[in-house]
């Protein structure tokens, strides 16, 4: 059943502009971040790690949360429009699977974006004259960034399901990204849901994850949040009265 729902979600997204945005968006920090790195190599001396900070500086805190907010809003808007919830909930599928299918679709999109960000990062590194990319570290940033991002996705799907407006959930995602920055600055990045994505991808202070209990704790916290928001989302979907 879930597979069919995922297929339905994929069909709904066919020829949608969101794909284009997810391809184009990471190109901006890749080009401009690399240019900034090249012109400031006197200060940015940690090669690949310095380059990563330039690529992810604003992406993590502002633009990726906003993009995820837009993406989740778009996924839910398809149902909010034309009273589609009525049709969706009268289909012979469980309501909780509908929520889960949307969550998985958004998470796949996030994963693809992360992979694309990392591919662009490696290409940019070579273009900037760097050699020997730290593959394992890049993979860690990608995997843990995706895991942290899935927490944001779970919240945003939940919010977008309950707010019909397209713009307001995106505004909340923006405020969430901002709050994430504040929590990171207060060394509470590992417990605040909107900080987890930048925390997982954080190249500025990779030791922080180790200090806060290591990757195991990070995974448990992320999994806990994802489970929590999924359960809440499912319960709301199950009890929802459609108008």
């Amino acid at each position: 059943m879930l597979r069919k729902l995922l297929k339905a979600e994929r069909m709904k997204l066919r020829r949608s502009p969101v794909w284009l945005a997810f391809i184009l968006m990471p190109v901006i920090p890749a080009v401009l971040g690399t240019a900034n790195y090249i012109y400031n190599q006197g200060i940015l001396t940690k090669e690949w790690i310095s380059l990563w900070t330039q690529h992810t500086l604003f992406t993590d805190y502002f633009f990726l949360p906003i993009m995820l907010g837009i993406y989740c809003s778009y996924l839910m808007r398809l149902e909010h429009g034309n009273n589609n919830w009525n049709k969706v909930f009268t289909m012979p599928v469980s309501r909780s699977s509908v929520f889960l299918a949307k969550l998985i679709t958004a998470a796949i999109m996030l994963l693809l974006s992360m992979i694309w960000i990392c591919v662009l990062f490696v290409i940019s590194g070579y273009a900037a004259g760097l050699t020997n990319p730290p593959w394992l570290t890049i993979a860690k940033w990608c995997i843990f960034g995706t895991l942290g991002g899935m927490v944001t996705v779970a919240i945003q799907i939940l919010i977008s399901m309950n707010i019909k407006s397209f713009a307001q959930p995106v505004g909340i995602a923006f405020l969430g990204g901002l709050s994430g920055l504040v929590f990171l600055a207060k060394n509470l990045g590992h417990i605040w849901p909107y900080s987890l994505m930048s925390y997982g991808m954080n190249a500025n202070a990779p030791q922080k994850i180790a200090e806060s209990g290591g990757y195991g704790t990070f995974v448990i916290i992320c999994a806990g949040y994802i489970a929590l928001f999924t359960i809440i989302g499912n319960r709301i979907a199950v009890r929802r009265d459609i108008a």
Partner: peptide
Amino acid sequence: NQAIPFFVGAMGTFL
């Protein structure tokens, strides 16, 4: 489709 102005605007802001 409000996703279009959002994406264009977000990319512009980023740039």
